[in-house]
Design a protein around this nucleic acid. Sequence first.
DNA 1: ATAACATATGAACAATCAATCATATGTTTG
DNA 2: CAAACATATGATTGATTGTTCATATGTTAT
Lengths: 120, 120
Amino acid sequence: MPDSSDVERCGFLFVHQDTVRQVTEQMPEDEKLYDLAELFKVFGDSTRIKILYALFEAELCVCDIAQLLGLTQSAVSHQLRVLKSGRLVKPRKEGKTVFYSLADDHVRTLIAQGMEHIEE
Amino acid sequence: MPDSSDVERCGFLFVHQDTVRQVTEQMPEDEKLYDLAELFKVFGDSTRIKILYALFEAELCVCDIAQLLGLTQSAVSHQLRVLKSGRLVKPRKEGKTVFYSLADDHVRTLIAQGMEHIEE
DNA sequence: ATAACATATGAACAATCAATCATATGTTTG
DNA sequence: CAAACATATGATTGATTGTTCATATGTTAT
């Protein structure tokens, strides 16, 4: 990370000074941007995407998901933990088994938007 | 990865057999799911998110972005390459300098949706 | 042509991460 | 209580990734 005494300068920054100030003002806080990146990181793995897609259709238990996707129970459980901590899925306990479902509709919307981008 | 001869079975798969079949049918092809995960992976880094946010307001050159975000020219260039290969930004060359802008509106929509999820 | 500049690229390294294996927790059934 | 079952967790490991440093490519100006 370069420190302020050693900042590079191209000719355009000062030409676009107004724009640059505007950009700086509109930029959300660092923490928010970090959280946003963390959210997308959760979507950024094909196993987790598959799990989410599976939950598009139905509430499923860990073991069902594992069979459905040809994965280990452990792998699925680990990934469900990531999805849960990102508030993308929510558990419902029923005796021994835990059923997972999508936490809210943002998950659907985000994935749909992503698909649109892929397919265009 | 477990092979088919050694599949775990919980009591629920067969209870939910119809649902499981339906889920399997609705599931997109593996390659598409992989690509989708790749797309989200591009959003899944705070530096890239910051770059995208900067480009929300204006077309900017590499050097401007570097200064704006307090990053190395090299780091920005590397990340712009990732963003470009994900078709999230597009370059416009003008002499020595290269200006980058958002490739399309999906970028805005996706980030907006993500922010909604974060802020709720 | 040569110097200055803007950007891109390649190699190297530290950090992060997903899958695996082994095991722990907690629930139901006999 | 003990055995069987469903899920969760912790440690390890191979792979991926973001940054840095050095350098290359390509453009403009003297």
